[in-house]
């Protein structure tokens, strides 16, 4: 039994939550993969459809709690919009009694409800059931979702395949906006960061160097890096970070940036980043991807490289160009498919 287990059991004991969500069932034995949240499947009795309930683990730290609340706020801001998971019910709260060492402790469990997905993109990559066209359609949806956020001045800051969900109808939607931040307006939850928000394996050098402390808007550029890393993973199955970010790379970065006070970081980093980009090369898709059509491999390689460029100043940030590149790859693939089909038909005749 893990330390999550008592909370999981407490919630599962309930048959109805807030007179709306019935029969909560943990999503897997662990209640999802989140460190600070518990995920349940339930039925929304109002709309008579399955939903997901995301509970905050009590006693999480204040920052995590704030992140949880912020996620619900951001989701309500994007309610009804495509490509982002739909918030079914904004933040609610249930109170339960947790028995520990014979003592009953009242605890409050905050939650919100979102629509149910079939699985996440990471699982799809695992199963290797998508062809290149599916992967590109998925990536296009991801980019659209990020574009939506950016248009509203919000950076996601934790983009990775596991944070995009494949819905029951096959569409792909963005989720897990706990680390999302309005880079233009809302103040930071923390005065300064000890480590970058989000999964380090998808984090660009400027975020590892904690530049977002002094210029939060840099997180928008970081999202593009993560998109490139996701594209790399969609095509190859390999996570980009561990391949690129060697021990030496991190050492170089942190040795130079470690002692730099806030306010001087950008200046120092701008001097350092060209040498980082020169010494740490992004791998070629060809070296990791075996079954992608050769006709689009170079274009995809170029796209992922432009997005994941280690020097944030030269990174591709133009959504129109990204969509144009995706469309042109899709066009090539469709034509190729059509040609193969007609060749096959002629052969059959």
């Amino acid at each position: 039994m893990t330390d999550r287990e008592p909370f999981l059991q407490l919630i599962e004991r309930r048959t109805l939550i807030d007179n709306r969500f019935s029969q909560p069932q943990r999503i897997d034995s662990n209640g999802g993969g989140g460190v600070f949240s518990l995920i349940f499947k339930a039925t929304d009795t109002t709309r008579n459809c399955p939903v997901v309930l995301k509970f905050m683990i009590p006693m999480s730290n204040a920052y995590r709690l704030a992140c949880f609340e912020r996620e619900s706020q951001v989701l309500s801001q994007f309610a009804g919009q495509r490509d982002i998971i739909e918030l079914v019910a904004p933040q609610g709260e249930i109170v339960e009694e947790l028995t520990a060492s014979g003592i009953k402790i009242p605890i409050s469990l905050k939650y919100y409800a979102v629509e149910l997905a079939a699985c996440d993109v990471r699982k799809k990559i695992d199963s290797n059931t998508w062809n290149t066209q599916n992967k590109l359609l998925c990536f296009r949806a991801m980019c659209r979702a990020v574009q939506r956020l950016h248009t509203n001045g919000i950076a996601h800051r934790d983009l990775k395949p596991g944070n995009f969900l494949v819905m029951l109808d096959g569409s792909v939607k963005m989720s897990d906006l706990g680390t999302a931040r309005d880079v233009a307006g809302a103040p930071s939850l923390l005065p300064s960061y000890a480590s970058p928000p989000g999964d380090i394996r998808y984090t660009p050098p400027e975020m590892i160097a904690l530049l977002h402390d002094e210029m939060p808007e840099i997180a928008l550029r970081a999202d593009f890096f993560s998109l490139g890393a996701i594209l790399f993973e969609l095509i190859t199955g390999a996570v980009l970070g561990p391949i690129v970010f060697s021990r030496q790379y991190l050492n170089d970065l942190l040795t130079h940036m470690g002692a730099v006070p806030t306010g001087r970081r950008k200046h120092t980093f701008d001097q350092l980043v060209p040498s980082i980009a020169n010494t740490n090369k992004l791998p070629h898709l060809r070296n990791y991807g075996s079954n992608t059509e050769a006709s689009v491999l170079e274009q995809l390689d170029e796209l992922y490289r432009s997005l994941s460029m280690l020097d944030y100043r030269s990174r591709l940030r133009d959504f129109n160009r990204i969509f144009w590149k995706i469309e042109s790859c899709l066009l090539v693939l469709r034509n190729e498919e059509k040609y193969n089909r007609s060749r096959l038909a002629k052969g059959t005749k």
Partner: peptide, 25 residues
């Protein structure tokens, strides 16, 4: 990359980031 760690004050940060990467995987 198997280069050795230099002994400096940022060593801890490097290790913690690398450790984070491993623990995520």
């Amino acid at each position: 990359d198997v280069s050795a760690f230099p002994s400096n004050e940022n060593m801890g940060s490097t290790i913690s980031i690398l450790g984070d990467m491993v623990s995520r995987s």
